[in-house]
Structure formats: C-alpha cells, structure tokens
C-alpha cells in the first residue's frame, strides 16, 4: 500500500520574491511480513522465543562462520547492551543452534522464496 507521498514541487519553481512553499502530507506504508524462516534443528524454539521478536533471523543466519565464544559474546551483547530479555537458561541452546546452522552444507540464506 502506498500512501500519497508526493508533495507539490512548488518550492522548486518558486518565483523571485515569493516565499518558497512546501506542503507536507501525511505518510504511511505497510511493510512486508517477515516469514521468520529458521531451519529446523535443536534449539530452534529458543531462538524464536528469545531472538526473532526484535530482528529477522537473517541477522544471525547471514553472518560468516564464527566461533562458539563469538556467538556467546554476541548473545551477551544483546542482553547487556540492547537489553534483550533473553532467558539465561536458553543461551546454550541458542548458541548450539546457531553453530549447527552455520555448519550446514552450502549457503544458508533462509528468508528465501522456495
């Protein structure tokens, strides 16, 4: 859905002496749904419960392969810096899931039409 986003271009054509005028119209958009695609695997529910409310799964799945320590530090950063209400008991499952997803064969780009 596209709202009326175009403002009159009067300001570009303003004659000498006339005060340039810009008219601002309300604007709204509808963003596409997020399919939230996450490959099956142990810990998937923990990722859905703790991570994907704030951001799409691609944030995680498109990262280059990184170590367990780096994933643990990343989850910790989400909690301490970005105040993500992550269940502490779920962190090992989240990290296991992300490591397994990255270890999968080939290219993991999950938000794809199939």
């Amino acid at each position: 859905m596209r709202a009326a986003l175009f403002l009159p271009l009067a300001f570009l054509l303003a004659a000498c002496g006339a005060a340039p005028r810009v008219e601002f119209a309300d604007a709204s958009i509808t963003l596409p749904d997020d399919p939230g695609d996450l490959p099956e695997g142990p810990g998937r529910d923990s990722v859905i419960e703790n991570c994907t409310a704030c951001h799409s799964p691609s944030t995680m799945l498109q990262q280059p392969k990184i170590s367990r320590e780096k994933w643990e530090a990343t989850v910790k950063k989400m909690v301490t810096l970005y105040k993500a209400p992550v269940d502490e008991k779920a962190v090992p499952q989240i990290v296991d899931y992300l490591l397994a997803a990255q270890a999968g064969e080939g290219d993991v780009s999950r938000e794809t039409p199939r």
Partner: peptide, 10 residues
C-alpha cells in the same frame, strides 16, 4: 510473528 506464519509471508 514467527511461529504462526506459514508460507503465506514469503
């Protein structure tokens, strides 16, 4: 947002 959305959101 995530659990209940099937292929419709593609």
């Amino acid at each position: 947002a995530a659990l209940a959305v099937p292929a419709a959101g593609k």
